[in-house]
């Protein structure tokens, strides 16, 4: 009697291998995308820096790519981005954190079932719509209510809108971190006679701190990269800001990096001139800043995931 035949079927094996590599190719496409982003930005940015010195770019305090005198200092754009980041952080971080605490510690399951999808809607509204809201509703409303002199284009309403948009990013990641805090810690505190307020603020929040931190960074990174809201509502005035003068920061027109990119992108500038290439230099700056922030957020988040696994 012969032994049974369990040998490999050539066609079957070949087909299996083919599918494996096909799927692997799809996964590797994501790495190719990253490489392509870096190369695209870098190659044109190198062209740009052949015409404008890196030092002038990084330290210049004037941005005027098309109007004489031409200047390519990125600092005014970075300070514009900073204003929007600070403004939206002041809206989104406290509100997002309180929302996370409410959802994690106070809300019933039923409330959560309604509140969480409703909050997600905030992140789902197209940003061009938020930009339009900021321009035609929020700015006139603030102008009417507050006794301040608000420009048509201003950092304030843009910041508020960006802030509202990133609330769910703060709240959902923070809430995940708070939900991951073991109940035994809460029980220990309740056992000592603590109220829910004390438990939330002095037990849950500290224990979830790295997750909260991670959500903050991710949300701010999103604010830095946000384009349409600021392009529509914040204006096109690249200027250095004075951190000690909040009114000057928020009530007037500014120009963040993303908005400057849109301005160049919608303009008629083409070809190989530094004005066009500056698009890529600013893009690279933006990419590096957000990439580093996302990476930090990811690393911090993976640490808290390990702690309570």
């Amino acid at each position: 009697m012969s032994q049974p035949d369990f040998s490999h079927d050539g066609i079957r094996t070949a087909r299996g291998t083919a599918f494996r590599y096909l799927f692997m190719l799809c996964a590797l496409l994501s790495i190719l995308t990253t490489v392509a982003i870096i190369l695209t930005l870098l190659l044109d940015a190198v062209d740009f820096f052949a015409q404008v010195s890196l030092v002038d770019f990084l330290t210049g305090t004037r941005w005027s790519p098309t109007n004489e005198p031409i200047a390519f200092g990125v600092l005014p754009l970075i300070s514009g981005t900073l204003v929007i980041t600070i403004g939206s952080a002041m809206v989104a971080l406290p509100i997002g954190l309180l929302t996370a605490i409410y959802l994690s510690e106070y809300a019933s399951d039923r409330q959560r079932a309604y509140l969480k999808p409703a909050l997600e809607v905030l992140a789902g509204v197209p940003t061009v719509v938020y930009g339009y809201f900021a321009l035609v509703y929020v700015t006139p409303a603030i102008d009417a209510i507050l006794p301040v002199d608000l420009s048509t284009f201003n950092a304030l309403s843009a910041s508020i809108m960006v802030g509202i948009m990133i609330i769910p990013m703060v709240s959902s990641i923070s809430e995940d971190a708070m939900s991951a805090v073991p109940d035994s810690l809460r029980q220990a505190s309740y056992g000592l006679g603590a109220t829910k307020f004390t438990v939330s603020t002095s037990v849950v929040v500290p224990a979830a701190l790295s997750g909260i931190f991670s959500s903050f960074i991710l949300a701010l990174s999103r604010a830095i990269g946000e384009t349409m809201i600021v392009a529509i509502a914040a204006g096109q005035t690249p200027r250095m800001i004075d951190l000690t003068d909040p009114a000057g920061m928020f009530l007037d027109s500014i120009q963040p990096m993303t908005s400057a990119m849109v301005q160049i992108g919608t303009g008629d500038i083409v070809g190989q001139g530094p004005a066009y290439k500056s698009l890529f230099a600013v893009g690279l700056t933006l990419f590096v800043i957000t990439f580093v922030m996302n990476l930090i957020s990811e690393l911090v988040a993976s640490r808290y995931r390990e702690v309570y696994r």
Binding site: I37, L218, I224, G225, L279, F280, G283, L286, F287, S297
Partner: peptide
């Protein structure tokens, strides 16, 4: 997933 959409535009 966190790269700003405007950067994808440049890509």
């Amino acid at each position: 997933a966190g790269v700003p959409s405007v950067v994808y535009g440049l890509l």
